[in-house]
Design a protein around this nucleic acid. Structure first.
Lengths: 342, 342
DNA sequence: TTGTAAGCGTTATCAC
DNA sequence: GTGATAACGCTTACAA
């Protein structure tokens, strides 16, 4: 019979008894050892070890008003791009003794409000949100509970909210300019769904802006909005290819759509990039590495997660922090070339 | 000036006062409304709304001994395969009012012990672990605190631990048999690092077993162990190609390695699958969709996450539950063909 | 159906 | 340096 399974978990008082000190001293020895005589600390450490004592987080949180927990609210983890950020965030928090509470809302504002509430109820010390637009109720709850937070993956134009992110619009301008410089004039866009997704909207807007600067308009039939799935990418390509003249360059709202579009090119025996140039945002090194002609704007998603963690940790520790951090993006050209000559 | 930012967060007593009832009634109205007169519930709901009341999770947890929180410990989120499972798990938990606490250990047993301890200290009601082999300290802590848990992604051979997963060895046998049936006789394996990773070890073992049944041995130089990265996959392919006769089939320990290997094939102008057959485990639809010749064993990772959540939720609710669930895997053939004739 | 009050296991404020 | 002890905000017998 296993002894461990019969004995109930030890509490602070048990440790105190075994170490022959008060609970107050044990508490101090565990959180601020410098304020306790070294010999006492040692004795307490031994008692902790002997009993396999683990602090009761809820009790600790109730008394100290700190849970050492950070909440993250993202649209989804299905997209590798958010998974990377999440991983980096968790890593950095763990090193500082913080644990990550995770919630996804699947691009649904109602769900976002609910899960954010759940995190706040769990007592998160800080909150990382994705994007700059959120349901009013979310901002109100955060305000009421005075929870330090940081918006990520986009930059707050108003300058009122702390944020760490990328300039999605500028990134789109960059990719469009690159294609314009190569000589492309016939564009199409397979955009993400822009409603309720400012990142997708900013990217589309950036393309429009860059083309507009050269007096090139983007006809309605040259723009399709699709959810971020492979089959949508394939579908999107078929749709934009229907128009005449056929576009020579297709800009996709993210990597998944781009991969889908490339798959459709292959299915239609279209040579990429000779007959068609496909570009996209984010990054999917794994697919790009075996796919010629996939030019992308790469976002430093890992850095983003680490920075977000550091921002909150600094605030919680009372250290100075940046209110706004813009991370540079990188244009990764993988064999993209100019349009076919007529 | 924003009124919300000056007023402190409301507590249960505030709601009770406004609704003119005791705190006990408010508590009941919020957790077991059926035991409170409807009119009272309504009054309390209004008070909650008016004050923007959100329960204090730590206090609630301390009193009820339930945090409504589930912990997940995985190697990494960098691998899409674990991200999918995590996402599904979170989704299912959220629907039941549970929140996910996430920790990654990067294949380091020491880190695993530490982060698992952190989750237990945070008071998780249940725990999802990945794989069946864990540091003894982890199992001891779980036992001491009597925390319901479930092992995933592998099946416990001893039958002592609740688990939901796949038979990695059988999956490997399946993929090897498939290749044998196609006529392949010269095999090479780019395996994951098997030390401390039973899933990788099981897969390698499965290949050996299937080949052994046909009296085909796997020479040491035909097996390389690599971390799950693209460049390792490329490197691995170069290494196994050095031997003579050259293998006609390369089995990769997971999808990332397989994609890397495919990239190297392309770099060396090797025709896949005509000159070489590349197969792998897990799944990376995104890359496979644009890559001919990538045969894989697909694991239902989303189902795994959902099942794991359901298992724990059932136990926490006192409902009956399966102790052992084996999920079927699927062989996805994407153009893989037999070996070139000599 | 509702109220009273005793915890839940820590931390933190005092004294000593 | 250490020890009493009062919070912390909620749940839950037990009473009414």
């Amino acid at each position: 019979m296993n002894a461990g399974s019969t004995r109930r978990a030890a509490k602070l008082a048990d440790v105190a008894r075994l170490a022959r000190v008060s609970t107050a001293t044990v508490s101090r020895a565990l959180t601020v050892p410098d304020k306790v005589k070294p010999a006492t600390v040692t004795r307490i450490r031994q008692a902790v070890e002997a009993l396999g004592y683990v602090a009761h987080g809820a009790a600790r949180a109730l008394a100290s008003r700190r849970t050492h927990t950070i909440g993250l609210v993202i649209p989804t983890l299905d997209n590798a791009i958010f998974a990377n950020t999440t991983h980096a965030l968790q890593r950095t928090l763990d090193e500082a003794g913080y644990t990550l509470l995770l919630a996804c809302h699947e691009f649904d504002a109602g769900v976002e409000a609910r899960v954010t509430g759940a995190l706040i109820e769990r007592g998160v010390d800080g909150l990382v949100l994705l994007g700059t637009t959120h349901p009013p109720s979310v901002l109100r709850m955060i305000d009421t509970h005075q929870i330090p937070y940081v918006l990520t993956w986009a930059l707050d134009a108003s300058g009122r909210y702390p944020c760490i992110g990328f300039d999605n619009r500028a990134a789109a301008v960059r990719i469009a300019d690159h294609l314009l410089a190569l000589g492309h004039r016939e564009f199409a866009v397979i955009s993400g769904v822009t409603a309720g997704n400012e990142r997708a909207a900013d990217r589309l807007e950036g393309v429009r802006q860059a083309l507009g600067a050269r007096s090139i308009a983007l006809a309605p039939e040259r723009v399709v909005e699709k959810p971020y799935t492979l089959s949508s990418g394939r579908e999107g390509l078929r749709e934009v290819l229907r128009g005449t003249p056929r576009p020579t360059a297709v800009i996709c709202g993210n990597d998944v759509l781009a991969i889908g579009a490339l798959a459709e090119c292959r299915a239609q025996a279209l040579a990429v990039p000779r007959e068609l140039s496909v570009t996209g945002f984010d990054d999917l090194e794994m697919a790009a590495v075996v796919t010629p002609g996939l030019t992308t704007v790469h976002f430093p998603t890992t850095e983003l997660g680490a920075y977000a963690a550091q921002h909150l940790l600094a605030r919680l520790a009372g250290r100075p922090f940046e209110t706004r951090t813009e991370l540079p993006v990188e244009l990764v050209v993988r064999g993209s070339t100019g349009p076919p000559s007529r």
